[in-house]
């Protein structure tokens, strides 16, 4: 399928089918697993569809907006994020525990996975490319302020930055601070201010005028 990217002047035929090594490896694993009855192609398709269309950072944004407007929910989220998030219908497929970390005037939270790429899928969907890149994974720990700077997030010098390293068992959701000027906004409108990056900690929630 990559052949479509080739230029007309090279010597590849446009209509050749070709499998890259990785593409063919996936086919090969699928062949073995199907023969052994370990994978069901319909289930595989359903999983892909779920992650492509149903699971994404809008889930997390709902959690954050609810925490902004409902102090009882916020307290629950702080105490038992796994249950508070599951109550909105977002449950992890890997049985992982969730922890919500709240930004305050004193502390900004930043999430990384130095081990590989553990990420709170149930609330944020699949991780962005930079989250999986070695540059972010190593620098978020060594130089979080420099990393935030690159994302355009400038915090007061006396704001402490806490870096949370995710694991297979424990994933973090950053609850950004509620922007000023949002008093009286509905939960749904507030959710529009909550970006994916603000829930990883590489961004802040949008100001109401910026979201329009």
């Amino acid at each position: 399928m990559n052949d479509h990217h080739h230029h007309h002047d090279d010597h590849h035929h446009h209509h050749d089918n070709r499998y890259s090594d990785m593409e063919a490896r996936v086919r090969a694993l699928e062949t073995v697993l199907t023969e052994k009855g370990l994978v069901d192609p319909a289930a595989i398709n359903a999983i892909v569809e779920t992650y492509e269309t149903k699971v994404g950072p809008r889930n997390g944004a709902q959690v954050v907006a609810k925490a902004w407007t409902d102090p009882v929910y916020a307290e629950w989220l702080q105490r038992d994020a796994t249950a508070a998030i599951a109550s909105l219908g977002f449950t992890g497929r890997q049985g992982e525990h969730m922890r919500a970390v709240f930004n305050t005037n004193e502390t900004h939270n930043l999430v990384v996975c130095t081990l590989c790429s553990c990420y709170p899928w149930s609330v944020l969907g699949l991780p962005p490319v930079w989250y999986k890149a070695p540059a972010y994974r190593s620098r978020a720990v060594i130089d979080p302020r420099g990393v935030l700077d690159e994302f355009g997030v400038v915090l007061p010098q006396d704001t402490k930055i806490r870096v949370w390293d995710s694991t297979a068992e424990l994933r973090y959701l950053v609850v950004p601070q509620r922007p000023s000027g949002t008093e009286g906004m509905s939960e749904a409108d507030l959710a529009d201010l909550v970006t994916r990056d603000s829930m990883i900690g590489t961004g802040l929630a949008l100001a109401p005028e910026a979201a329009r």
């Binding site: 399928m1 890259s20 990785m22 593409e23 996936v26 086919r27 694993l29 699928e30 697993l33 370990l38 994978v39 069901d40 289930a43 595989i44 398709n45 999983i47 892909v48 992650y51 492509e52 497929r93 890997q94 969907g125 699949l126």
Partner: peptide
């Protein structure tokens, strides 16, 4: 999110195998 179809399949196979307790 998935740059090419095979990446989605690899991802889904992994999730599926985990769910089946492999």
């Amino acid at each position: 999110m998935f740059p090419e179809p095979w990446t989605a399949e690899a991802f889904a196979m992994t999730v599926h195998l985990h769910e089946r307790g492999v």
